[in-house]
Structures are given as C-alpha cells and as structure tokens.
Amino acid sequence: MSAIIENHELGGQHVSERIEELRIQDLHAFYGESHALHGIDLTVCQGELVTLLGRNGAGRTTTLRAIVGLIGRRTGSIMVKGTEVINTAPHIIAHLGVGYCPEERGIFASLSVEENLMLPPRVAAGGMSVEELYDMFPNLAERRRSQGTRLSGGEQQMLAMARILRTGANILLLDEITEGLAPVIVDKLTEVLIALKARGYTVVLVEQNFRFAAPLADRHFVMDHGKIVATIRQDELAAKQHIFDKYLSV
C-alpha cells in the first residue's frame, strides 16, 4: 500500500529524483514523405501516469507508435529503462516491459476472447494472473469462448487492456482507451487506472477525454503539430487553463 501514498504525495513534483522509465530526446518520425513528429522531448518516471493531450493529428498516436517501434522511420533517441531502442525491432522493445494498447484496440477476429487474452508473450515477471484479470473484468470471463470481435466496444477495450496486463509489462502505452465508450465503462476504466497506479505501473495515456484524464495524471504533455508545446503538472492545472483552451478546444 505504501506505493499509493508515495505516488499520491509526490505527484509529479519530485520526478527528477526517481527512476526514468522512458526518456525521449529529439524524436522525429516519418510516414513515407510526411514528417509527423518534429523533435519530441519527454521523460516519464517509474510509477508516473502522464497524458499526451492535443487535437487529432497533433502526433500523440505517432509518439506511442514510435516508442513501440511501429513507425518505419524515426530518428533521435528513445531510451526504455536505460536501453536505446531507436533502431530496435518491435518484438525486442516489447520484451523491455512495454505494453501497447492501440487506438483501434486491435482485437483479433480469428481468436477467441481467451486466446486474445493469452496471445502476447510474457515479457517480465509479475504480470497479473488470468484469475486476477477475470476478477477485474468479469465480462471477459463470461465471454471467454466468444470470438474476440463479437464483444461490445467496451468489452473489447477491457480485453485490449487485460491482455497487456497479463504479460508483466510495466510501462503501459494506452491510446484513446475511452473513445466512444459509455460513461459507466469510462468509470470502470478510471477504477482500473487508479488500481494500476497503485501497483506502480508507468502509464502514458493518449486521451481526448480531459475530464477522464485530469484527475488521474501526474503530468500532461500538450502536443501540437508534432511537438510538445507545454508540460503541465497536476498542481498547475488551474493556473495553466489557458494553455488547454488554446491547444485543446476544437
């Protein structure tokens, strides 16, 4: 339980004293000819929950995809737990303890719910057991024999989360996990994220739903046109409201 108190008390203020799980420097990423990220710098420490906020096309999803190695051409530096991965193949990056939940959820139609859940290989010790996960997401237990894509949108999202929690990954990259979901499911995901923070997971959350993200996050990185334009700590939210208004209002 001490982890909860520590996280809560520290917030984002003393991050520099803690272990860097992710350090990105001058990251550029390209889709073919188009230059999608223009020099990202960010650091996330162990146990921190940060968000990438911004409008569509600001480069948030691209940042996550670059970290897991799904962007063909990227330059700069991405250190995961102290290992440089800028030229590393995706399957090796995953084994450093990175769990990725893509925006489209990526549930496999030709796999059952349970097969989807069991699919990602273990990347580290200390993942949650299947029982724990079915406890956390009872709907998945009921529908374990169903085809993965027959689940409702909310259930698919839970499956996409659950399957990376099983692997022992402790850096979670979550892309728009609340998108298009009913409020009751969003509440459930809030609960899950609080539980994950308590367990010491490091989380990078790409989010549109500011109301969902604001109370959970230690820091917010505001992105625009492939750059980080502002970093806002949780205790500065009120003071820096104008930044959100400028970059997030549609």
Partner: peptide, 25 residues
C-alpha cells in the same frame, strides 16, 4: 495451439503482434 494463435493473429495484424513481443519475421 499457441503457435497457431500467433499464426492467425499474424495473418490479421502482423505489426501489432510484433509490438506484443512476438518475433514475427
């Protein structure tokens, strides 16, 4: 089998499967 699950998943979305840590190549 597990390897069959990898093969089916790799047929659908090889990039995501690789991002999960499976040596897709």
């Amino acid at each position: 089998t597990k390897i069959g699950a990898y093969l089916r998943a790799g047929t659908e979305n090889p990039k995501l499967l690789q991002a999960f840590g499976v040596n897709v190549p």
